[in-house]
Design a protein around this nucleic acid. Structure first.
Lengths: 185, 185
DNA sequence: TCTGGATAGGTCCGTATTGACATATCCAAG
DNA sequence: CTTGGATATGTCAATACGGACCTATCCAGA
């Protein structure tokens, strides 16, 4: 159900072809929020057309077909966005790995935590550029999806990094406690 | 593919029945990392047994069958956890809504952002209790999954709240810029 | 004793999703 | 003028998943 809203949302920014939309999912949208390939997008676009939530223009060059959101489509999107906050589907392989970290022995776990910190720092550098560099408004004066997403990603990675640093400290503490309980032979 | 690792990971903490595992997904694990109902869990456990990654004990009361991770299962889990960081499947309806926020007109968007801030504050209060209250180590001296997860959730919600506050500010700025461009009639 | 809630296991069906395959056009660089 | 890469759209089969449904046991409290 979420894919259709992602598509409707993207189409409020500008009319787009399935190909354009597939590319949009390759950015921060796909990294933090929802993923979809063209194979999933084309059938869903067809359904949205059937339901009158979007309109499809005639074929352009290379069979390109541009889609535009309708008033009905916008109403549907708005209803979904404003419905009471429920934590719906959540699926994040990266975070799952973080959670399962304590299954490893301390050396492995620490190695992984250090990697997380390094990785987060890299992403932070990239995102800082995006957030500070890009013009924040669309021609009509609306904030840009990608820019908001980058701002979110930035804070997300800061949180991840801080968590990893905290977890490293906790691993150290736990180990010291164990050492105290079983003094060196 | 991730479900199996989640199950293997949970079984490194302690042997568990399918029912126990289903409950584990109702906590912070399911909220931030990966969701699964018992309808997905039972078939996957059967597959893991077939592949020799876990072992299933005889039936106890109410047909309860306790599963234990094998050495092979642990090796599989470890390999997955230590494999180079790739951003795998990500799916988060809540974050998607945040990203699509700028599709709304400023008043609606602001309303939603305020809700996000309120909601985040509530969750923060709950998580602060968990993180500060619970004993951080298992009997064998290993850090508790749930506790690490709560620590992550805490930082996550802080990031969400900060983002929403930042976004609110940006909406204000954008609106003031628009007002400047089209002075009040 | 009986009843409701928690424990415990499971199936089935429709939809969502992914990976692989397939095709055609446009265009710039060699 | 040809070739490779980007643009563009699709299908199909296999798997993953979620919601709904079903059964049965244990036990505490009314």
């Amino acid at each position: 159900m979420a894919l259709r809203y992602a598509l409707l949302g993207l189409l409020t920014e500008r009319p787009a072809s399935g190909y354009d939309l597939a590319k949009a999912f390759e950015g921060d949208l796909g990294r933090y929020a929802w993923q979809a390939g063209h194979n999933r997008i084309y059938p869903e676009l067809a359904r949205l057309v059937d339901e009158g939530l979007i309109e499809r223009a005639e074929e352009g060059a290379r069979g390109r077909r541009v889609h535009t959101i309708t008033a009905a489509g916008f109403a549907e999107l708005r209803a979904w966005l404003l419905q009471p906050l429920v934590s719906g589907a959540v699926r994040n392989e990266g975070v799952l790995r973080l959670f399962l970290l304590s299954a490893l022995d301390p050396d492995d776990a620490r190695k992984l935590l250090h990697e997380i910190v390094t990785h987060a720092e890299q992403e932070l550098a990239r995102l800082k550029d995006t957030v500070s560099g890009e013009t924040p408004v669309s021609p009509e004066g609306r904030l840009d999806f990608g820019w908001l997403a980058a701002g979110y990603g930035l804070r997300q990675y800061e949180a991840s990094r801080d968590w990893a640093v905290w977890a490293l400290g906790e691993f150290d503490k736990a180990e010291r406690r164990q050492a105290g309980r079983h003094p060196a032979a």
